[in-house]
Design a protein around this nucleic acid. Structure first.
Lengths: 190, 190
DNA sequence: CAGATCATGTAACTGGTTACATGATTCA
DNA sequence: TGAATCATGTAACCAGTTACATGATCTG
């Protein structure tokens, strides 16, 4: 899947500028693209050309004009068709596992340092993804996937499930690396 | 990380032709590239140019010559340096989660069909990845990450951990989708 | 005054995918 | 005889990343 459907989905939820989208991508765990300008602005042009989104240019006095995009009826239809399409398996690229395959050449201390560093990083992500399960501060504009911004109870269930999936992913990874460190340290001393 | 280190690692383990590599990539769960020719043959040329692998051309009577590659001393040094490098977080692309974010427009039955199909696919992967934890048939050439092919006990521990990571990944995913289906069906009927 | 924020975009590159191309051999 | 396997490669394309480019405004 390309970033286009993610953008189309967001624009079906509320109207947003390229800059808004960029921030949403940067903040969200679930939207795993970097949110770089190139891709977002090109995707918006493309969606526009295909008639899936509309633009409204809002001139501002002192800042560059905001181009605010929203999904059109055709865009919503296209999105609905896509959501019904056959699910793909998630793809996971896990460079550390390839590193570990050949890491037997490393001294035990260095290997454990590597794993400890990894554990730290994963723990950070686990905390962040668990935090997203908590509702945002009252008064704040609901962020993407915050059940408070959902339009129906079922949508809230789905959004919570998405966040739980990410939390489970990092939780499982954290448990794995901790178990591996224990196993390596006990094997060494036995 | 590019596919190059994965190839260099395999060639540090045993000597292989491009065709052998292709098959290993296709068979292995852990080596998540498609194993397409383009990338493998280009990577081999590149590694060769950088002096990290050597080639031996083995002419065959009736088939095209095999070009058998192996890691050189420099290649092994480069690989060792890479294994010691800072670990990266795994990256996961999960299109279904983006689909679900906007799936509230689907009728309940269609949504459950989608999730059921996903559950099936994940279950297949879960079974495959658990199966790789079993030793290969006696007499068969040890496959990549089969502890039987490991060169030291610690390497066997690492290889098992890698396979367990994949099994845990699919196991966690399977539990998640099952729980979600239950939640959606009970919410509907209450 | 420096750094973050608002707001738009472009250029160059990397990594990876799909499909094309060739041709003999082996097996059901 | 048709499909799978052995064995090499090339061409065209797509998605995504990093870095470049501009410039005003707001905040500490």
């Amino acid at each position: 899947m390309s970033i286009e459907y993610a953008i189309l989905g967001l624009l079906s939820w509320r109207e947003l500028s390229g800059y808004d989208l960029k921030k949403i991508f940067e903040e969200s765990v679930a939207l795993y693209w970097t949110g770089n300008n190139n891709e977002i602005y090109r995707a918006l042009v493309d969606l526009r050309e295909r008639g899936l989104v509309s633009v409204e240019v809002q001139p501002q006095e002192k800042l560059p004009a905001r181009k605010v995009y929203a999904a059109t009826a055709e865009g919503r239809a296209e999105l609905a068709a896509w959501t019904a399409s056959a699910p793909q398996l998630p793809q996971r690229r896990h460079a550390l596992l390839i590193q570990l395959a050949w890491a037997d050449a490393l001294p035990a201390g260095q290997l454990d340092n590597l794993l400890a560093e990894y554990e730290d990083e994963v723990q950070t992500q686990a905390i962040i993804s668990r935090a997203q399960l908590q509702p945002a501060a009252a008064g704040a504009r609901a962020r993407f996937l915050d059940p408070a911004g959902a339009r129906t109870p079922r949508e809230a269930v789905l959004w919570r499930a998405i966040l739980e999936n990410w939390a489970a992913f990092y939780g499982s990874e954290l448990a794995w690396v901790r178990a591996l460190r224990v196993e390596l340290s006990t094997a060494r001393s036995s």
